[in-house]
Amino acid sequence: MRAAFAGTPEFARVALDAMLAAGIEVPLVLTQPDRPAGRGMKLQASPVKQCALAHGLPVAQPRSLRLDGKYPDEAAVGRAALEQAAPDVLVVAAYGLILPQWVLDLPPRGCVNIHGSLLPRWRGAAPIHRAIEAGDAQTGITIMQMDAGLDTGPMLLAEPLAIAAEDTTATLHDRLAALGARLVVDALGRLESLPPVPQPEAGANYASKIEKAEGTIAWTLPAAVIERRVRAFDPFPGCSFTLGGETFKLWRAAVLPGAGEPGTVLAAGEGRLVVACGEGALELLELQRTGGRRVPVREFLKGHPVVAGQRAA
């Protein structure tokens, strides 16, 4: 089994590492171009590229694979690299580029995707975030045969995973990455014998990309909705609000009974900070000021006195 690999972030890196540990031959790795990162905005290789280079694997980083798109020369280089690698199958995990038909057709055994949900629920770019935001009790991993649609191909393997009440996108991501790595190694080991199962249309929905603006807290929403968003948007983009003219990020909260004008501080002091919401109230447990670090609310209140009746926005 020669399995080329296409992926970019840590979620994909975990799968690539598992494939290599299982002895699967990886003749080529496709990943996104290096991006500026950190305070110095220096170019940084993706986690997948770092893993590939550490194992001496060939790497290609075209900005597009569409031969008729904006970067046809880079797409042509990517195509030449794939043709030279001659993989039996292409494994795709959070790659970040849409695969044109020529890529889907190139490997004899097609392209296999590791998707972070139980399809057809949460097709699209942000299945982990959206599952937490929606209050789902479980999610999972689906190994699917890719087609021209967006996460619409037939399913090869799937395994559920419970979402804990305290899960953030960060914690759930790590468990799903490990599960995806295990399942894709399993799938590759018996690819010829796994029957492709068409996805049902019932229950299909779309996990749209997370936009930074979604992190602004609207206190008119129910407290339970805000609390789920706090967990769903951790680590990115975080949930923010203003109080006393300064902007803060909220990283942990708890839903409480309570009533008041949304955004009004109902209780402050003795290590507690409670804000009224459109339905119920939210106890703020972990906060961060701009340029600071995350701190428990007790520590936060020592440097930022708050009184009942103040309004958060």
Rank of each mutant, 00 (worst) to 15 (best):
F5H: 03
A276G: 03
Q44G: 11
G280P: 01
V89M: 02
R2P: 12
E74N: 00
R39K: 05
Q84P: 06
E261K: 11
E286A: 14
C111G: 04
A259E: 09
E214H: 15
E283R: 05
V29Y: 05
P160F: 04
A232P: 10
H55K: 13
R293T: 15
A267V: 10
L16Q: 02
G116H: 14
V77C: 08
T290D: 12
I143S: 07
A131E: 10
M1F: 14
P195Y: 09
Q310K: 01
F236K: 12
E192P: 01
A60F: 03
Y71H: 12
G149Q: 10
W251P: 03
R123G: 11
G278F: 14
Q44P: 05
K49C: 12
D105K: 06
D174I: 05
R121Q: 15
E166P: 02
R175M: 04
D136H: 01
L273E: 07
C51N: 04
P160K: 01
D17W: 03
P9H: 06
P27Y: 06
R175C: 04
D34A: 15
P262N: 07
G238V: 14
A164D: 15
E286G: 10
R79I: 08
A218M: 06
A6V: 11
V185C: 09
R272H: 11
C239M: 06
E246C: 11
P58A: 14
A162P: 13
W219L: 10
Y206S: 05
E133K: 02
T264W: 02
A308Y: 02
P108N: 04
V103K: 00
A207R: 01
D73N: 09
L82I: 12
C277K: 09
E74Y: 04
V297L: 01
L57H: 07
R289H: 15
R2C: 13
K249I: 02
Q138M: 12
Q199H: 09
R79L: 11
P222G: 13
G260R: 03
L221W: 15
G292W: 12
L20V: 14
L194E: 06
E279F: 07
F248W: 10
S240C: 05
K249Y: 15
I226H: 03
A60M: 01
A76E: 15
V26C: 12
K42M: 11
A81H: 02
L172H: 03
E227H: 04
H55S: 10
L28E: 13
P154W: 11
H129D: 07
F11C: 07
F241C: 08
G149M: 05
R130V: 09
R123M: 14
A178N: 08
T8C: 06
G280K: 01
A253F: 09
C239W: 04
R121S: 15
N205M: 05
L150K: 00
Y95L: 03
V275R: 00
E83Q: 12
E246W: 10
N113Q: 06
V197P: 00
D88P: 02
A232G: 07
A207W: 03
A207Q: 01
L188V: 04
E74G: 00
V225A: 12
